[in-house]
């Protein structure tokens, strides 16, 4: 069911065999009323990556995920994704039966999967609960779970079977900093096992922390995708020197072979290249430059994002 085909000739841009966990081509969703939620989306999510799907609220991330899971029918375009029983998903927050225990809730979702063996259900449920640290609350009714526990139960549900792909829609929404850290380390752990993780977020910091790849959405359109490094635009980290002797400092840095030296009053900056900052500092002081401050500035995804979208954005702490 996960494979969508165009009626015409097979698509020319077929993914290389087995290399991608998700591929979409021209994927478009226009809701009744004409609102275009997703517009000609071309995604390629490599297997084994932790793929950040980034964009402001309302930029079409959740609609895309719903299409990938077969919940929403695309208006046009195609997508292909790992078969659903091998996809674990958290979509728009946890949803469970409040009067059932955490364990009974997971048994319920497991029973809905026609490929899940009944014989191993209890073991797999227990393992999933253990993995998210909910074993102690397994018999407790979902109604009495805290927000963080609910989120963790939803992640446990996504881990019920052997998964090749994990789709996590805003997994840290509503979590406290402790819970956020737990989710991040869980994602890293899962990715270390070779599972592809597709994580949507409106938090840049989160994507920078967790992901190897990212795509940036804006108003239903993809504005950039690639590895985090390539998204940073190859922009090298820069060294920034605060000094009253700006001109001297600039001369010293040029002399050491640093490129793109910029001099602006009491501040001098240059591409760091392969230089060690402590050596730079020593050379500056040796040349009689009074150094007030020395720092390395790494380009952040935030700058890239703002550059691409020109929109305000929630930036995490």
């Amino acid at each position: 069911m996960s494979v969508t085909l165009e009626a015409g000739a097979p698509s020319g841009a077929s993914p290389p065999a087995g290399d991608d966990a998700i591929v979409t081509e021209g994927l478009t969703k226009r809701f009744k009323g004409g609102q275009v939620a997703v517009d000609a989306l071309d995604l390629a999510v490599p297997r084994g990556s932790v793929y950040g799907f980034l964009g402001p609220n309302g930029s079409g991330k959740t609609t895309t995920i719903r299409m990938l899971l077969g919940l929403v029918t695309p208006t046009s375009g195609s997508y292909s994704v790992v078969p659903l029983p091998r996809v674990g998903a958290l979509v728009e927050g946890p949803a469970f039966y409040p009067y059932l225990s955490g364990e009974a809730n997971l048994m319920r979702y497991d029973a809905a999967d026609p490929t899940a063996p009944r014989r191993t259900a209890r073991t797999r449920v227990a393992a999933a609960l253990d993995r998210v640290g909910l074993s102690a609350a397994a018999a407790k009714r979902y109604r009495h779970y805290s927000l963080g526990m609910r989120q963790r139960l939803a992640i446990a549900a996504a881990l019920l079977g052997p998964r090749e792909l994990l789709i996590l829609d805003e997994p840290t929404n509503g979590l406290d900093p402790q819970g956020t850290r737990e989710v991040r380390s869980l994602v890293k752990e899962i990715a270390a096992d070779g599972t592809t993780v597709f994580v949507s977020s409106h938090l840049l910091g989160e994507v920078e922390h967790m992901c190897t790849h990212a795509a940036i959405m804006r108003a239903g359109r993809l504005v950039a995708q690639g590895t985090i490094a390539s998204l940073n635009g190859g922009r090298a980290p820069r060294v920034r020197v605060e000094t009253p002797d700006g001109a001297d400092a600039a001369r010293v840095l040029r002399g050491l072979g640093l490129s793109a030296v910029a001099h602006d009053g009491h501040e001098v900056s240059a591409d760091l290249g392969g230089h060690a900052t402590e050596r730079l500092n020593a050379s500056l002081v040796e040349a009689g430059v009074a150094v007030r401050g020395l720092s390395v500035v790494r380009p952040s995804l935030e700058e890239v994002f703002v550059g691409l979208t020109g929109e305000g954005f929630d930036v995490e702490g």
Partner: peptide
Amino acid sequence: SAGTLRYLLAAPAGRTRL
């Protein structure tokens, strides 16, 4: 209304089957 439908279908329960 409880939102559990999306998780059942993503399981995937299958619409006809469900």
